[in-house]
Simulated scan of single mutants.
Amino acid sequence: MIRATKVHAQYRWSEPAADTVVLDFDDRHRRRMAMTGTRGLEFLLDLENAVALRGGDALVLEDNRLIEVVAAPESLIEIRGADPHHLIRVAWHLGNRHLPTQIMAKALRIRRDHVIEVMVRGLGARVIEIEAPFDPEGGAYAGGGHAHAPDNDPHDHAAHGHSSHDHGEHHHHDGHCDHDHRHDHDHGHSHAHDHK
């Protein structure tokens, strides 16, 4: 099976794509995965490191043909605030819970989550249920829209869907963090952060 071993960043390519893959947010955060394009082309995504793919990226096959990445529509909620300051306050609460969040000009988008919807409404924001591609911020681990991390790294936040949270963290590959203080989060485990 032919492999896709490289990625051309969002819209930085001009030649026609040989095929297209439509992927949801989770499937756009892989290092190695068998894929089939919408026109039937089968290939193996086989990247050196896990990469956070975005709609508009192109996967480069070994024979240099391109496969366009399209972000699949997902069940989301769009959050609107009374003014920009209100929206920033809501964004802080989402980031504090490590929720993947897409930042729009006048709204925030997250995956549907009843508990979070109740919290957001409690903060006075408006919640609208939508179906749309989900393209959240890459957070501290993204470089130019692409998050690179070793496969199976226990602290690969891009692969776990964490974003909107940048504390300049320093992670070690032995599974332990080197930090000055700890704070707990709603998702059942704690992360420590070294603020400098």
Rank of each mutant, 00 (worst) to 15 (best):
M1D: 12
M1W: 14
M1G: 14
R3G: 11
K6Q: 15
K6V: 03
H8Y: 14
A9D: 14
Y11N: 15
Y11K: 11
Y11E: 05
R12T: 07
W13I: 03
P16I: 03
D19W: 00
D19K: 05
T20I: 15
V21M: 08
D24G: 03
D24Y: 00
D24A: 07
D24M: 02
D24V: 04
D26L: 06
R28L: 02
R28W: 09
R32L: 03
A34V: 13
A34F: 10
M35F: 09
G37I: 00
R39I: 04
L41Y: 02
E42P: 07
E42H: 07
F43A: 02
L45M: 14
L45S: 03
N49T: 12
A50R: 14
A52I: 08
A52Y: 14
L53N: 11
L53D: 08
R54I: 12
G55Y: 04
G56M: 02
D57I: 06
D57P: 08
D57E: 10
V60P: 06
V60W: 06
V60A: 10
E62P: 10
N64V: 00
I67N: 12
I67G: 09
I67S: 10
E68P: 05
V69T: 03
V70Y: 04
S75H: 14
I77E: 02
I77Y: 08
G81N: 09
G81F: 01
A82G: 11
P84D: 02
H86P: 07
L87D: 00
V90R: 03
A91F: 05
G95A: 05
N96W: 13
R97G: 12
H98C: 10
Q102M: 07
I103E: 04
M104G: 15
M104D: 15
M104C: 09
A105Y: 06
K106R: 14
A107R: 00
L108A: 04
R109L: 11
R111K: 15
D113T: 02
H114S: 13
E117A: 04
V118P: 00
V118E: 07
V120A: 00
V120H: 00
V120L: 06
G122M: 01
G122L: 02
L123S: 04
G124Q: 07
A125E: 05
A125L: 08
V127L: 03
I130T: 05
P133L: 01
E137G: 09
E137H: 13
G138D: 02
G139A: 02
G139F: 04
G139K: 06
Y141P: 00
G144K: 09
G145R: 13
G145F: 10
H148Y: 15
A149M: 12
D153I: 07
P154K: 11
P154Q: 09
D156F: 04
D156M: 09
A158G: 15
A159G: 15
S163K: 01
S163H: 02
D166W: 01
H172N: 09
H172I: 08
H172S: 13
H176W: 06
H176M: 11
D178R: 13
D184H: 12
D186I: 10
H189I: 09
H189Q: 08
S190N: 11
H193Q: 13
H195S: 06
H195W: 03
K196N: 13
K196Y: 10
